[in-house]
Nucleic acid binder design. Structure first.
Lengths: 221, 221
DNA sequence: TAGATGTCTAATGTCGACAATCGACGCACG
DNA sequence: CGTGCGTCGATTGTCGACATTAGACATCTA
């Protein structure tokens, strides 16, 4: 059995992540240490530890002497985050392209198939999860841990964005085809093409999400 | 005038950075919060804050329930860090290549000239500093703040490595020529070439430093 | 003697309280 | 009526003490 997490800090991290995901904490909100500590029945110390950690992955924005806030992301920042992830993962996949075995490629195909099925069935959460597995599987083939660390730090942030907006992003066929293109590029063993395809995938998704977010902000105003 | 830093946390960060740079803290050493707090005459709280922040830029390695350590970098990790920086900056410069004005390019030339002069004069610290300015100037032209943030998080780490090993890395002519190649690539406005040249620059430097470090580890053993 | 087990110590994890600072409000002044 | 300054409240920054845990050492057992 997997041992459960222990320190309060880790529990606080999960808690805040959930609060953001469920919109109980909305962009622009300040996270008051004392309040959260009281709500969770613990002291401020582990809260602060957790906030520091969330800061490093961009889920919290910190202003010295003022407080911690849920960041308000502009469309440009969204695109930039996705672009950066694409740069990192694009290089990772390109550099490791020779390491993908036939079995690996079949596994990737399987992910794409499942993604298409789930998308057509309207199982949005499943699509998001499989998408995460797909990209984790891609990234896992690199041996550059520094690159992997940065890529990983972006994933929670992007995951939240994607999770909040999936519905309007892609048609089922599109989402399947977009990911299939990545697998195909790896099959081609054309390093330049691989990097370019992965980058384009992220830039495109980021652009769409930014547009959706901008549209929502419009209607809200 | 630039306002001075205020919180203890920031002072602690600088202090630890200096300790590492001067080898008073060596790779593998544990940083004991209580001890450092006593030495600096403050409590453990700001020490912990500083350690968390240093963790995010890779200057401190943290093991839960055990402590904070100065990381022992393997040659591969050194190369990976430089490679990753090259990926990020390579993209940044490439994407912003059209934004470099004639004046900017002249300024870059000036940096390279100064670097060559300082190198020939044996002013190693000056070479390191100008090199930092050069790369900051390059990176400053991108508008992707996410990318810039990651790139910046690597710079302290790489700066320490470079500072500790500069002597054995390049001949004066080489260091000038390596950087000149970057400026030339920007002048060419060949996006593919720009990205490739910047990447190669970092990979090469990282490889050299890793080799130097490996050699030192050898003689020490 | 080799291995497992118990104990101890030193370090991190957490706590509640106090101090310093930022931002907002209201007042005086032009 | 608009602007600048002083006060105030709320929130973060820091503190010292206590709780808990990982690792080292000693002890017990076969």
């Amino acid at each position: 059995m997997m041992i459960v997490k222990k320190t309060y800090k880790d529990q606080v991290i999960d808690h805040i992540y959930q609060l953001i995901l469920t919109d109980e904490l909305q962009p622009g909100d300040q996270i008051k240490e004392s309040l959260l500590a009281a709500q969770m029945g613990i002291s401020r110390a582990p809260i602060r530890e957790a906030l520091k950690e969330l800061m490093t992955i961009g889920l919290i924005e910190y202003r010295p002497q003022v407080g911690n806030f849920v960041p308000v992301l502009t469309p440009k920042q969204i695109v930039d985050s996705y672009t950066t992830r694409g740069i990192l993962e694009g290089y990772a996949v390109m550099a490791a392209s020779e390491l993908f075995s036939t079995e690996d490629l079949i596994q990737l195909d399987r992910y794409v198939d499942e993604m298409g099925l789930a998308a057509r069935a309207g199982q949005h959460k499943k699509v998001v999860d499989i998408g995460g597995d797909f990209h984790d599987f891609l990234a896992a083939h690199t041996d550059n841990l520094q690159l992997l660390e940065f890529s990983g730090r972006l994933s929670l942030k992007l995951h939240i964005l994607f999770y909040k907006h999936w519905g309007l992003l892609y048609k089922a066929d599109e989402i399947e085809q977009r990911h299939r293109a990545i697998v195909d590029s790896i099959r081609s063993q054309d390093r330049g093409r691989i990097e370019q395809v992965v980058r384009a995938h992220y830039v495109e998704t980021g652009t769409k999400i930014a547009a959706v977010q901008a549209a929502r902000a419009e209607t809200a105003a």
